[in-house]
Computed example of a mutant assay.
Amino acid sequence: MISPTLKRLAVLALPMAALAVTTNVHAEEWTPSRSIEFVAPANPGGGWDTLVRTVSRVLQEEQLAERNFAAINVPGGGGAVAWAQIARDSGNPHKLFATSPPMILVPLAGASRYDHTDFTPVARLITDYSIILVSANAEYETINDLFDALKENPRLSVGGGSAPGSMDHISVAGLASAAGLDASSVNYIPFSGGGDAMTNLMGGHVEAVITGAGEAAGQLGEGSQLRALGVSAPERLTGSLADVPTYQEQGVDYTFDIWRGVMGTPDMPEEAVTYYENLFAEMLETDGWQQARDQLGWIDAYQSSEEFGDFLDQQKELFSDVLSELGLLRQ
């Protein structure tokens, strides 16, 4: 039986906030004077990287931004290396970074001296979901097949692109608990990003990989070397993931939402925050964004800077309970 705390992961909010934004031009309105460094705190191929490159491409194609958004990868420490660099650039309005649950989880686990309160929330953009992948020639056809094998042989491992106690680990731990295993018994192997985790899966170094559905979408389909066993959404996704059953369809009562958004440097000027809020809200209404979003199986979940900040505080409370249950909370 899934514990009450892990079950609470299913209630991560999905508000479809109205995208009405004040766009009146004022004389003091800020605009960027050079290219914006848009940091993905991981190697290429993961969820942060996918968000950064998709947003940068859509902004350019839709001609929404005055300056180019330059995608930059800064891997290491489940995000901690990038956060340490960004923290030293206080007040810089030309630097942004992609964020998601590890921004809360990694500091709680004691792996980063910086947490979300050290940076400037800009906007939440979307919600993604977790997906379990195995090699196409693996013997597992369902989530239950995989977890039966894990029960039989606890040495079998599940890889992920985030640090222990971070997003992928929490997601698979909750799933394992819902499937009747002790969450702490899952042999989770962390890699430096989703791309690295996939490489190790194909090399036979792990039995399965848990990653973001969006980043896996382009690697599935006819002729793929991967097979998706299930997705953490409450109902089936669209596009290339339409044939992937949910966990709930397979009798495992569990969902997990991966929110993704954008944050800025410490003490980013208020007028710069307003500029980016408006820019991202406008982007979400474009055809280019909606096409990319649907291909990746994302769901719009916009929040303004203030709303996103409040949401992050709530996430810290929730995940503190989860990590405590797994014995991973820094004391």
Rank of each mutant, 00 (worst) to 15 (best):
Q225D: 14
Q225C: 08
Q225W: 10
Q225I: 07
R227T: 06
R227N: 07
R227G: 02
A228C: 12
A228R: 03
A228T: 05
L229Y: 00
L229T: 02
L229V: 03
G230L: 07
V231E: 00
S232P: 10
S232K: 02
A233F: 08
P234T: 05
E235I: 00
E235K: 08
E235M: 07
L237T: 01
L237K: 00
G239N: 02
S240L: 08
L241M: 13
A242V: 13
D243Y: 10
D243P: 08
V244P: 00
V244T: 02
P245M: 04
T246I: 08
Y247D: 03
Q248P: 09
E249L: 03
E249C: 02
E249P: 01
G251P: 05
V252G: 04
V252E: 01
V252I: 11
D253T: 01
D253L: 07
Y254L: 00
T255S: 10
F256L: 04
F256C: 01
F256P: 02
D257I: 11
D257T: 13
W259R: 13
R260F: 10
G261R: 01
G261F: 01
G261P: 06
G264L: 02
G264A: 08
G264T: 00
T265A: 01
P266C: 01
D267M: 11
D267K: 15
D267R: 13
M268I: 04
P269K: 06
P269G: 07
A272L: 12
A272D: 14
A272P: 15
A272Q: 13
A272N: 13
V273W: 01
T274M: 12
T274L: 13
Y275N: 12
Y275R: 12
Y276W: 11
E277N: 15
N278I: 09
L279F: 11
A281D: 12
A281N: 13
E282Q: 15
E282M: 14
L284K: 09
E285H: 12
T286L: 06
D287G: 09
G288L: 05
G288Y: 06
W289M: 11
Q290D: 11
Q290V: 02
Q291K: 12
A292M: 13
A292H: 10
R293Q: 12
R293L: 05
D294K: 04
D294S: 06
Q295W: 09
L296W: 04
L296F: 04
G297D: 07
W298K: 08
I299Q: 15
D300S: 14
